[in-house]
Deep mutational scan, measured.
Amino acid sequence: PREAYIVTIEKGKPGQTVTWYQLRADHPKPDSLISEHPTAQEAMDAKKRYED
Rank of each mutant, 00 (worst) to 15 (best):
T8S: 12
D52F: 12
K13G: 13
A46Q: 04
K13S: 15
W20D: 01
G12H: 06
I34V: 09
P14G: 09
Y21N: 00
A25N: 06
A4Y: 13
A40L: 15
H27M: 10
G12M: 05
E3R: 14
D26K: 13
W20T: 06
D45F: 09
P28C: 05
E10V: 13
E3A: 15
K11Y: 12
H27R: 09
R24K: 15
G15E: 06
T8C: 08
A43L: 01
Q41H: 11
H27Y: 15
K47E: 02
V18A: 08
T8E: 13
T19C: 04
W20C: 04
Y50N: 02
D26N: 15
Y50V: 04
K13I: 14
E51V: 08
A46C: 03
E42Y: 03
K29T: 13
I9A: 05
Y50E: 03
E51C: 03
L23D: 01
E42C: 03
V7L: 07
E36K: 02
L23M: 03
K47S: 02
Y50H: 06
R49M: 12
M44T: 09
P38S: 12
I6V: 09
A4T: 08
R24Q: 03
D31L: 08
K11D: 04
P1I: 15
K48H: 11
H37S: 01
E10C: 06
S32Q: 09
L23Y: 01
E36V: 07
P30D: 07
P14W: 08
K48Y: 09
S35P: 00
I6C: 02
L33P: 03
V18G: 05
Q22S: 04
Y50A: 03
L23T: 02
R49W: 12
P30I: 11
H27D: 11
E3D: 11
D52E: 13
R24T: 04
A40D: 06
R24W: 14
E51M: 13
G12R: 05
S32T: 15
K48P: 01
A4Q: 02
G12Y: 05
T39F: 04
P38T: 12
E51P: 04
I6E: 00
E51F: 06
Y5I: 06
A25K: 08
A46R: 03
R2C: 07
K13Q: 13
K29M: 14
D31G: 15
A25M: 06
E36C: 05
K11S: 06
E42M: 07
L23N: 01
G15W: 06
P30G: 10
Y5N: 04
P30L: 11
Q22F: 02
K11A: 06
P14L: 08
E3F: 15
K48G: 08
S32E: 07
D31M: 11
D52K: 12
A4G: 10
T39A: 03
L33A: 03
K29I: 13
K48D: 08
P30T: 09
P38D: 05
A25W: 04
I34T: 01
P28V: 08
H27S: 12
L33E: 03
W20M: 08
P28W: 06
P28L: 13
R49V: 12
D26A: 09
E36P: 00
Y5A: 02
L23G: 01
T39G: 03
Q41L: 10
G12E: 04
D52P: 05
K13F: 12
T17L: 14
E3T: 15
D31C: 09
I6K: 00
T8Y: 07
Q22T: 04
V18C: 04
K48F: 09
D31E: 10
E10T: 14
Y21P: 01
A4P: 09
A40M: 15
A40K: 15
K13L: 15
K48M: 12
D52I: 12
D45N: 11
L23P: 00
R24C: 06
M44P: 00
D26C: 09
I9W: 04
G15A: 05
K29H: 14
S35E: 02
Q41D: 10
E10D: 11
V18H: 10
T17D: 04
E51N: 12
Q41E: 14
P28I: 10
G15D: 08
L33W: 04
T19P: 07
S35W: 01
L23A: 01
A40P: 12
H37T: 01
D45I: 14
A25L: 06
A46K: 02
E10F: 10
I9Y: 08
W20Q: 04
T8V: 12
P1K: 15
S35F: 01
R2A: 10
H27Q: 14
